Deep mutational scan, measured.
Amino acid sequence: GLMCLEHEDEKVNMYCVTDDQLICALCKLVGRHRDHQVAALSE
């Protein structure tokens, strides 16, 4: 899978609806997407 741009060791596994961007779990937990609307990726 694709790796996160901000956290190079994390794979992107969710999608930020607010930013129209693929993000990883760390982005959602501690990153700038924590208050955004996110959706899980169905692979």
Results as ranks from 00 to 15, higher is better:
residue 31 G to R: 04
residue 28 K to A: 12
residue 18 T to A: 09
residue 13 N to K: 11
residue 20 D to T: 05
residue 5 L to F: 07
residue 12 V to G: 11
residue 28 K to S: 10
residue 11 K to V: 04
residue 25 A to T: 06
residue 14 M to W: 09
residue 31 G to C: 07
residue 6 E to R: 04
residue 13 N to G: 09
residue 32 R to D: 08
residue 25 A to V: 04
residue 5 L to E: 12
residue 37 Q to R: 08
residue 21 Q to P: 02
residue 3 M to V: 07
residue 20 D to S: 09
residue 3 M to Q: 04
residue 15 Y to S: 09
residue 4 C to Y: 01
residue 26 L to P: 15
residue 21 Q to K: 14
residue 9 D to V: 08
residue 42 S to N: 13
residue 12 V to Y: 10
residue 40 A to V: 05
residue 32 R to G: 11
residue 31 G to P: 09
residue 26 L to I: 02
residue 42 S to V: 06
residue 43 E to M: 04
residue 26 L to E: 12
residue 5 L to P: 11
residue 29 L to G: 14
residue 2 L to H: 13
residue 23 I to A: 10
residue 14 M to H: 07
residue 18 T to L: 04
residue 1 G to E: 13
residue 31 G to H: 11
residue 40 A to N: 06
residue 39 A to I: 08
residue 37 Q to E: 10
residue 26 L to Q: 15
residue 38 V to G: 07
residue 32 R to F: 01
residue 19 D to K: 01
residue 28 K to E: 10
residue 13 N to H: 04
residue 26 L to M: 11
residue 3 M to K: 10
residue 35 D to A: 04
residue 34 R to D: 06
residue 23 I to Q: 08
residue 35 D to R: 04
residue 28 K to V: 03
residue 40 A to W: 03
residue 19 D to W: 00
residue 27 C to R: 00
residue 17 V to M: 10
residue 37 Q to K: 11
residue 5 L to C: 11
residue 6 E to T: 10
residue 36 H to N: 03
residue 36 H to R: 01
residue 11 K to R: 10
residue 2 L to P: 06
residue 30 V to H: 14
residue 19 D to P: 01
residue 1 G to A: 03
residue 34 R to S: 08
residue 5 L to A: 10
residue 17 V to L: 08
residue 40 A to L: 06
residue 26 L to F: 15
residue 26 L to W: 05
residue 26 L to N: 14
residue 31 G to S: 04
residue 15 Y to I: 00
residue 34 R to P: 05
residue 42 S to F: 01
residue 19 D to I: 11
residue 7 H to M: 01
residue 6 E to V: 06
residue 31 G to E: 06
residue 37 Q to H: 07
residue 35 D to E: 12
residue 3 M to F: 13
residue 35 D to Y: 04
residue 15 Y to P: 07
residue 15 Y to C: 11
residue 12 V to F: 15
residue 8 E to Q: 11
residue 21 Q to N: 13
residue 36 H to S: 02
residue 9 D to G: 11
residue 22 L to K: 15
residue 5 L to R: 09
residue 6 E to S: 11
residue 6 E to A: 08
residue 29 L to Q: 10
residue 2 L to S: 15
residue 7 H to P: 01
residue 12 V to T: 07
residue 25 A to R: 12
residue 9 D to T: 05
residue 30 V to Y: 09
residue 13 N to D: 08
residue 35 D to L: 06
residue 5 L to G: 08
residue 20 D to R: 08
residue 24 C to M: 00
residue 3 M to W: 04
residue 27 C to I: 02
residue 7 H to Y: 01
residue 18 T to S: 05
residue 21 Q to T: 08
residue 29 L to K: 14
residue 23 I to T: 08
residue 32 R to W: 04
residue 12 V to L: 05
residue 31 G to F: 02
residue 32 R to P: 09
residue 19 D to L: 00
residue 42 S to R: 07
residue 33 H to S: 01
residue 4 C to L: 01
residue 7 H to G: 02
residue 43 E to A: 10
residue 28 K to C: 07
residue 19 D to C: 06
residue 4 C to E: 03
residue 28 K to I: 12
residue 18 T to E: 08
residue 31 G to Q: 03
residue 23 I to N: 01
residue 21 Q to S: 11
residue 40 A to K: 13
residue 33 H to T: 02
residue 8 E to P: 14
residue 28 K to Q: 15
residue 31 G to K: 08
residue 42 S to A: 10
residue 31 G to L: 02
residue 8 E to G: 12
residue 26 L to D: 12
residue 13 N to S: 03
residue 3 M to D: 10
residue 30 V to A: 13
residue 34 R to W: 02
residue 23 I to R: 05
residue 41 L to R: 12
